[in-house]
Design a binder for these strands. Structure first.
Lengths: 330, 330
DNA sequence: AAAGATGTGACAAACGTTTGCAAATGACAG
DNA sequence: CTGTCATTTGCAAACGTTTGTCACATCTTT
């Protein structure tokens, strides 16, 4: 079928080990033979077979990345950080999208290991499951944005602090009845954000009203539904802290189509600072996460872990979020 | 290191060919041995090595997908169609993002072939280059959304017709000085859209003013720059047809921040119908492309081509776009 | 001119599978 | 009790590489 190292050897009348050495810039071949080999390889259109190579070298220079949703540009930007850093380090990224589906996530975890990737970066769709993976995954892996470390490396942001800052800001701006429109209740990230929100309220001795804390999906649709629910009771809600920017978008959708004036009548605060938060038509006030850096650090730690081999020690990196004020809060 | 088929064989005292047959549901082993093998494999945590397997079977059940930009949700949705259809058919997708960089594109093309993917779906960053690939790619591949077929399969949309419909609609709505804010001049897709625009104008005997047809990137920034240029001359432009929705977003950005009233004073028309075109804050009138289907058909054709082997015959699928009226046109 | 040092290239094993073929086993009929 | 099957199992080659070891030339050095 395709040209192999042996074909080159035969055509040049030398042994194929010499061809291999020539092509890999290994010592042990004269520069003259090396040149002949390289020319012949190009002429014959030789493409090394990474499977054969991987088989003997026991490494693939490939790392697997599993994320729930690429349409959410939060993950898009993180992924960008991962891929660029990977390429700079000579790794290729095998990107897997689970669509928030745990079955698919497990499937990918298996596939990646069968492909013998050198390491895995995982954002699980369900933080609870992560501890189980300890036994199932036997390559270096690192958890992204979820519950820190069950004996594995971790990169994430200080979610609790982020929503604490955000809630404090809303209070400072004079909002009094602040609701929380959360994502999945199963999400550790989400619950951390709720914690920060509660913490800020308690600090000001404001009683926590459980009915103001609702959960749905991390989607615009989820936000729309929660907004509808929150704005149609007698609670006089004057601000909604959304679990993330996508949710906030759904909240804004409901609010603008139902004539709530923003930011006077209703303040809206997001979390993530994805790229359309700053579109002039949207101008969402939000908590900024360093997304590209998240990906970059994840990959860098992973590579450290890979190089360290069996006796790797796990690390956690927690980055600090910050408030970005735009037009959806007064 | 990790458990192999030989370890299982040794531990069970049988030959490793039997283990292989048992694990692959091949005939030639008694159901009793099969059961013992499967149990032992699970117990030992056996994970087949896809590289070794791929080496002998000469197939990887993996297809490579190369796209310029995942942040552009047009590609995001197409990719979704590809990945889901692939999984349904037992294939895994190796996703590669080039960032509109031809160097990276070529690099990935090489990498994918070294990994011996069974086929490739390619959206090139520069349609011109595609004809060159004929010799460089020696696995089945299919071009996505660009110039149809140089002897390879193709899936795309009728761009010319799309912009023809769009321009006609703008005229019908009473817009008279319609400019075109295009993406890359190197893009065949882009030029087809320009053609459709010109065609519609000519049909109405409106003279073509070259100064109203400008090019930049397929980015929001590009759109912003072009809008600035188009709206600051004496041409009295009353509508801008953007090369795609992302460009349109940039146009809207400029227009709203510079007090053009939309849609009265300025009509804006996009192309693609990506998801935020329908956000209530945006409500962009645009030409809809069946994105998911584009990806789905691309994959299906590719699989056909793979199965057909050497004597595959190339196919082209051209889908029809349609107009979606929202609020950026009167 | 003999001995050692050096550089070049060939040979073969190994990586973890699949699979064609041969061998062993057992059942059953003649 | 032998011969003929069918079934189950084992052996070994193959896939395309990398790499340790060894043999051979060639070139110094004394």
């Amino acid at each position: 079928m395709s040209v192999t190292i042996k074909d080159i050897a035969k055509s040049l009348g030398i042994s194929y080990s010499s061809v291999s050495r020539a092509l890999n810039n290994k010592p042990g071949v004269s520069s003259e033979t090396r040149k002949r080999v390289i020319d012949e390889a190009k002429k014959m259109g030789y493409k090394p077979n990474d499977m054969a190579r991987g088989l003997v070298k026991k490494q693939t220079n490939t790392i697997g990345v599993i994320i729930p949703d690429i349409a959410n540009s939060f993950f898009g930007e993180v992924t960008e950080g991962i891929i660029e850093t990977a390429n700079e380090n000579g790794y290729t990224v095998f990107l897997c999208i689970t669509n928030w589906n745990m079955e698919i996530e497990k499937e990918y975890l298996r596939t990646l290991q069968q492909k013998r990737v050198d390491g895995i970066i995982l954002k699980s769709s369900k933080d609870q499951e992560e501890r189980r993976y300890k036994d199932e995954i036997n390559v270096p892996y690192i958890l992204l944005e979820g519950r820190p470390a069950y004996g594995n490396s971790f990169v994430g942001v200080n979610n609790k602090r982020g929503s604490y800052i955000g809630t404090k800001y809303l209070l400072k701006q004079g909002y009094r009845n602040i609701a929380f429109a959360g994502g999945s209740k199963d999400s550790y990230t989400n619950m951390q954000r709720v914690q920060g929100y509660i913490h800020a309220l308690k600090e000001r001795a404001i009683p926590i009203d459980k009915e103001l804390i609702l959960y749905n999906d991390f989607t615009a649709k989820g936000g729309y539904i929660l907004a509808e629910e929150l704005l149609n009771n007698d609670k006089n809600i004057d601000a909604i802290f959304a679990g993330n920017d996508v949710i906030a978008l759904g909240v804004l959708d409901y609010a603008t189509t139902h004539d709530f004036s923003i930011p006077e009548e209703l303040g809206v605060l997001g979390f993530d600072d994805i790229f359309y938060a700053e579109l002039p038509q949207i101008q969402l006030t939000t908590i900024h996460q360093p997304k590209y850096e998240l990906g970059k650090y994840a990959l860098e730690i992973l590579i450290d872990d890979i190089h360290a081999g069996e006796d790797r020690t796990c690390k956690s990196i927690i980055l600090e979020p910050k408030l970005v004020v735009r037009n959806t809060t007064r």
